[in-house]
Amino acid sequence: GEEMDTAEIARQVKEQLIKHNIGQRIFGHYVLGLSQGSVSEILARPKPWNKLTVRGKEPFHKMKQFLSDEQNILALRSIQGR
């Protein structure tokens, strides 16, 4: 696969979550399948791509996919709003 700019992906995700008022817990649960603790760690201190294991890269693939389609963001927003 291609190398990803993990810091940039994390920054964009944080931006979207704040902009749409989506909590990290909801994002972690529905998008990444991770706990809030793992999510906040990944978003606060993303490791460089070449330092990640295959498993460590997974959340970034999912985040990139999440960012690529605004429908994903809107869907999360409606879950959050319940």
Results as ranks from 00 to 15, higher is better:
residue 10 A to H: 00
residue 65 Q to R: 11
residue 82 R to P: 15
residue 80 Q to L: 09
residue 51 K to D: 14
residue 45 R to T: 13
residue 51 K to V: 14
residue 4 M to I: 15
residue 10 A to L: 01
residue 28 G to P: 02
residue 68 S to H: 06
residue 48 P to N: 04
residue 40 S to C: 11
residue 47 K to D: 10
residue 63 M to N: 00
residue 38 S to R: 02
residue 27 F to C: 00
residue 76 L to C: 04
residue 48 P to D: 06
residue 79 I to T: 08
residue 65 Q to H: 13
residue 67 L to Q: 00
residue 70 E to P: 14
residue 23 G to C: 11
residue 46 P to Q: 04
residue 60 F to M: 03
residue 78 S to A: 14
residue 57 K to I: 06
residue 29 H to Y: 09
residue 37 G to V: 11
residue 51 K to I: 13
residue 80 Q to E: 13
residue 58 E to H: 03
residue 81 G to R: 12
residue 81 G to I: 13
residue 24 Q to I: 12
residue 62 K to F: 03
residue 2 E to C: 08
residue 40 S to T: 14
residue 69 D to P: 02
residue 17 L to N: 02
residue 62 K to R: 09
residue 36 Q to V: 12
residue 44 A to D: 14
residue 3 E to L: 09
residue 59 P to L: 15
residue 70 E to S: 10
residue 65 Q to C: 08
residue 13 V to T: 07
residue 30 Y to V: 11
residue 18 I to A: 13
residue 72 N to W: 08
residue 26 I to S: 08
residue 3 E to Y: 10
residue 3 E to K: 11
residue 79 I to Y: 10
residue 73 I to A: 12
residue 34 L to D: 06
residue 22 I to R: 00
residue 39 V to A: 07
residue 50 N to G: 09
residue 19 K to Q: 07
residue 74 L to P: 04
residue 32 L to T: 02
residue 44 A to M: 14
residue 49 W to Q: 00
residue 70 E to V: 08
residue 14 K to M: 08
residue 18 I to E: 15
residue 5 D to S: 10
residue 48 P to L: 04
residue 76 L to I: 06
residue 40 S to Y: 09
residue 9 I to M: 06
residue 65 Q to A: 12
residue 2 E to I: 06
residue 5 D to W: 01
residue 33 G to P: 01
residue 69 D to G: 06
residue 43 L to I: 03
residue 42 I to C: 06
residue 52 L to Y: 03
residue 9 I to W: 01
residue 11 R to Y: 06
residue 23 G to R: 11
residue 59 P to D: 14
residue 38 S to L: 13
residue 81 G to A: 14
residue 78 S to C: 09
residue 46 P to T: 03
residue 79 I to V: 13
residue 26 I to D: 14
residue 48 P to A: 09
residue 42 I to N: 03
residue 68 S to P: 02
residue 66 F to P: 02
residue 67 L to C: 04
residue 53 T to R: 02
residue 56 G to I: 06
residue 2 E to L: 07
residue 63 M to C: 05
residue 78 S to R: 13
residue 21 N to W: 02
residue 27 F to E: 01
residue 76 L to F: 03
residue 67 L to M: 06
residue 80 Q to S: 12
residue 62 K to I: 08
residue 78 S to I: 11
residue 74 L to K: 14
residue 28 G to I: 06
residue 19 K to F: 07
residue 28 G to C: 07
residue 8 E to V: 08
residue 57 K to E: 04
residue 3 E to V: 10
residue 19 K to T: 08
residue 43 L to W: 02
residue 73 I to C: 09
residue 21 N to A: 08
residue 32 L to C: 06
residue 69 D to L: 05
residue 2 E to S: 10
residue 61 H to Y: 15
residue 77 R to Q: 13
residue 71 Q to C: 09
residue 80 Q to G: 11
residue 25 R to Q: 13
residue 73 I to E: 03
residue 69 D to C: 08
residue 82 R to A: 13
residue 34 L to G: 04
residue 38 S to F: 07
residue 31 V to W: 08
residue 74 L to H: 13
residue 1 G to N: 12
residue 66 F to K: 01
residue 50 N to Q: 11
residue 38 S to D: 15
residue 62 K to E: 04
residue 72 N to M: 08
residue 17 L to D: 02
residue 23 G to K: 13
residue 27 F to D: 01
residue 14 K to N: 11
residue 57 K to Q: 14
residue 50 N to I: 04
residue 4 M to V: 09
residue 48 P to M: 06
residue 29 H to P: 03
residue 35 S to K: 12
residue 9 I to N: 03
residue 36 Q to F: 08
residue 70 E to C: 09
residue 44 A to I: 08
residue 54 V to T: 14
residue 82 R to M: 11
residue 9 I to K: 04
residue 57 K to P: 02
residue 6 T to L: 00
residue 48 P to Q: 06
residue 23 G to D: 15
residue 21 N to G: 14
residue 14 K to I: 06
residue 77 R to A: 14
residue 49 W to F: 02
residue 10 A to N: 02
residue 17 L to F: 01
residue 39 V to F: 08
residue 75 A to T: 13
residue 36 Q to A: 13
residue 9 I to C: 04
residue 47 K to C: 10
residue 23 G to A: 13
residue 75 A to G: 09
residue 80 Q to P: 10
residue 60 F to Q: 02
residue 67 L to T: 01
residue 49 W to L: 04
residue 26 I to P: 03
residue 1 G to C: 12
residue 57 K to R: 13
residue 72 N to H: 11
residue 8 E to G: 06
residue 46 P to G: 02
residue 66 F to V: 01
residue 56 G to N: 07
residue 24 Q to N: 11
residue 1 G to S: 13
residue 16 Q to A: 15
residue 24 Q to D: 10
residue 79 I to K: 14
residue 55 R to E: 15
residue 67 L to S: 00
residue 73 I to K: 04
residue 76 L to M: 04
residue 58 E to F: 04
residue 56 G to H: 05
residue 52 L to W: 01
residue 31 V to K: 00
residue 10 A to P: 02
residue 21 N to M: 04
residue 18 I to L: 12
residue 41 E to C: 07
residue 79 I to W: 10
residue 36 Q to L: 13
residue 58 E to W: 07
residue 75 A to H: 14
residue 59 P to E: 15
residue 58 E to V: 11
residue 7 A to W: 08
residue 76 L to P: 03
residue 10 A to C: 11
residue 72 N to D: 07
residue 80 Q to H: 10
residue 81 G to Q: 15
residue 14 K to C: 06
residue 82 R to S: 13
residue 68 S to W: 04
residue 20 H to I: 03
residue 45 R to E: 13
residue 19 K to W: 03
residue 76 L to W: 03
residue 38 S to W: 06
residue 82 R to D: 10
residue 81 G to P: 09
residue 82 R to T: 12
residue 40 S to G: 11
residue 32 L to F: 00
residue 78 S to D: 15
residue 69 D to V: 05
residue 47 K to M: 11
residue 60 F to K: 00
residue 14 K to V: 12
residue 17 L to I: 05
residue 73 I to F: 12
residue 53 T to E: 06
residue 43 L to C: 01
residue 25 R to P: 11
residue 57 K to D: 00
residue 73 I to H: 04
residue 11 R to D: 06
residue 68 S to L: 10
residue 19 K to M: 06
residue 40 S to V: 08
residue 6 T to Y: 01
residue 31 V to N: 02
residue 80 Q to C: 12
residue 25 R to F: 10
residue 50 N to C: 15
residue 70 E to Q: 11
residue 66 F to D: 00
